[in-house]
């Protein structure tokens, strides 16, 4: 037998005599089986359209560094980029046909086509494409949601503030006015904020308040507290706490003589209104008045 005859055999390069000789050997059957078994192997998933899109984004951001010798060509590429963005946006929004939203004091649980789960907190909205889900796991989010992602292709959550991508894990995204938070409970989450990518391993969170980025550890719990009907805060300006309170109980909140930028650490119940009111007011040394669906928080006067 010649050198490397197995490689030659697989490539049909053996001479007839060699084939006959090889067929007589006792290993021949095993090699045939090995060849058959590996005929059915498939490679990993590769989303070429997305890769191309990402590449163009990166190219666009690097474009400015390249000195162009032909000025007309520059305009051509800009025109092409604009056309591409328009087409991409059009295609993207065209595919987001499924929509789920919650009102104040409401919650929803959604099972996606691949059995990934989404829990939607109050006053939030998601949209995605049911039809195209197998191709692209893409969700647009406004508000707050907790995701349990089934293993598979890249799963992307797009928000106004940033983009979150994962392959299969559990994480929470909160996207409110002036406030953006991503917490990872399992696996690894990649967050793109302000064109910068941050990798969040399990047990970590990223909080952005008014453009200021903070990396925090999350308490060692398996899921966000709101799933268990509790809203939890750690050094968060009071106004975001009151916003959340408003969303959970569908109340109108007003304040008087209160610094809403002061930091609040603690939690409140999402089911018991009176308990919640006390949990918020006592540590911040405030008093409150509840009338109908209006709450007024005011400073305690000595």
């Amino acid at each position: 037998m010649q050198e490397n005859y197995l490689a030659k055999w697989l490539n049909n390069e053996l001479s007839e005599e060699e084939v006959v000789k090889f067929k007589e050997s006792k290993e021949y059957a095993s090699y045939v089986k090995l060849r058959e078994a590996t005929d059915n192997l498939v490679g990993p998933d590769f989303d070429m359209a997305k890769a191309w899109e990402d590449l163009n984004k990166q190219k666009a951001s690097k474009e400015s560094k390249v000195v162009k010798l032909n000025p007309f060509k520059k305009y051509l590429s800009i025109a092409a980029a604009i056309a591409l963005i328009f087409t991409a946006t059009f295609l993207y929004y065209g595919t987001l046909n499924e929509e789920v939203s919650t009102q104040y004091a409401e919650r929803a649980e959604i099972v996606l086509p691949d059995a990934s789960e989404v829990q939607l907190n109050a006053d939030s909205q998601i949209s995605y494409s049911k039809k195209n889900w197998d191709n692209k796991r893409n969700i647009a989010l406004n508000g707050e949601a907790y995701f349990k992602v089934a293993k598979g292709k890249r799963f992307t959550v797009t928000t106004e503030n940033g983009t979150v991508t994962v392959l299969g894990t559990q994480f929470n995204v909160e996207n409110r006015k002036g406030y953006f938070e991503v917490a990872c409970y399992e696996g690894l989450v990649s967050v793109i904020y302000n064109k910068k990518e941050v990798k969040l391993p399990a047990g970590n969170s990223l909080v952005v308040i008014n453009g200021e980025v903070q990396a925090l550890e999350i308490p060692n719990i398996k899921e966000p507290s709101w799933i268990r009907n509790e809203s939890n805060f750690k050094s968060i300006p009071l106004k975001y706490v009151l916003d959340e309170f408003q969303r959970q109980f569908n109340l109108e909140v007003a304040t008087q003589n209160i610094d809403t930028e002061q930091l609040f650490t603690g939690s409140f119940s999402n089911t018991n209104k009176d308990l919640a009111l006390q949990s918020i007011s006592t540590p911040s040394q405030m008093k409150y008045k509840l009338e109908g669906n209006k709450v007024l928080f005011y400073a305690e006067t000595p």
Binding site: E3, N4, L6, A7, S30, Y31, L34
Partner: peptide
Amino acid sequence: VKAIEKRMHLALKTLREKIE
């Protein structure tokens, strides 16, 4: 190319031995 054939040959051989 010869080096690749060598790798291929060894890969097949090792796979068969490991599997059996």
